[in-house]
């Protein structure tokens, strides 16, 4: 059967929002989430979110470096000259982009805090030691997650470390959780960070080719409970999923005359605060027809 084709999109309605969590307000801590949206020279768009680890003293800087690292890597690997048109080619690019994100992040840390280099060896992009975090490595204070998506419809490449998540909305088809937060994260009690030694082993990396996608939601874990639901699979296990009603977010911001501020107002609402005291960040992007 022929794949349905979406008319060429005129661009994106991009609505980013980031609000400080009620817990951080109470504790006098700043918002440790960061996001970045960036139009790449070849027409692709980068959407990146990062969640600085609450337990790390300089994590908001780590989160900023993470999204900047994603921008540097995307500019390098998604230039018009480097555009691939096959699935294997796209996968190669995504892989290079992921490694580029890690190298740029390490480089930014080294550059911003030169003293660090002398104190401890940094983890390599593919390190697989048996400890998650080096206790004596000062870089751990910059601990952060990252999820970066390069959108070049109908191609979407993603790279994530940690518990951020990606939902795509398809027409027809509705909302789908494409990059879920790691399973069992709440019961494990630990999150893999860009500063973790086993970051590569636990990274989410992939390419999606889907002409039916009309929008993306790139989110930090602070909005996870408010947006996602739990579904029981046939084998009895439970997994997170994007509920049907999540498509309303894309409907709302696809409509002409929408107020971008609505997203931040909603993330700051009591309904969201009841689900989590954490910072809440979301980039919602809808393709304009």
């Amino acid at each position: 059967m022929a794949e349905p084709e979406r008319p060429v999109a005129a661009g994106w309605n991009v609505v980013p929002a980031s609000v400080i969590g009620s817990t951080h307000v109470r504790l006098g801590v700043v918002n440790q989430d960061r996001y970045l949206t960036h139009a790449l020279s070849g027409g692709a768009r980068l959407f990146a979110v990062a969640d600085g680890a609450g337990s790390r003293s300089r994590s908001e800087f780590g989160a900023q470096y993470a999204v900047e690292a994603a921008r540097l890597a995307a500019e390098r690997h998604y230039s018009p000259a480097a555009r691939e048109r096959t699935v294997p080619g796209r996968l190669r690019t995504a892989h290079a982009f992921a490694r580029g994100c890690l190298e740029a992040f390490d480089g930014l840390l080294d550059g911003m805090v030169p003293a660090m280099s002398a104190l401890a060896p940094r983890p390599r992009a593919t390190d697989r030691p048996d400890t998650r975090d080096d206790r004596d490595d000062p870089r751990k204070e910059y601990g952060t997650t990252l999820l970066a998506v390069v959108a070049e419809p109908p191609w979407y490449a993603f790279f994530g470390v940690g518990d951020c998540f990606l939902v795509v909305d398809r027409v027809p088809g509705g909302a789908r959780l494409v990059v879920p937060p790691p399973a069992e994260r709440e019961h494990d009690g630990a999150t893999v960070l860009l500063t973790s030694r086993d970051r590569w082993e636990h990274a989410a990396l992939g390419v999606l080719h889907d002409p039916l996608v009309r929008g993306l939601a790139v989110c930090t874990d602070g909005v996870m409970d408010a947006l996602l639901s739990s579904r029981r699979a046939a084998d009895g296990s439970c997994a997170l999923a994007a509920p049907e009603e999540m498509s309303r977010y894309f409907d709302h911001f696809a409509a002409p005359g929408h107020r971008p501020e609505d997203l931040a107002e909603r993330l700051a609402s009591e309904d969201f605060a009841r689900t989590s005291g954490d910072d809440k960040t979301m980039i919602l992007a809808v393709l304009r027809p």
Binding site: D225, H252, R266
Partner: peptide
């Protein structure tokens, strides 16, 4: 807004 941008009940 609550209807347009719905939130799930607390699950944690």
């Amino acid at each position: 807004l609550r209807d347009a941008l719905p939130a799930q009940a607390p699950r944690g």
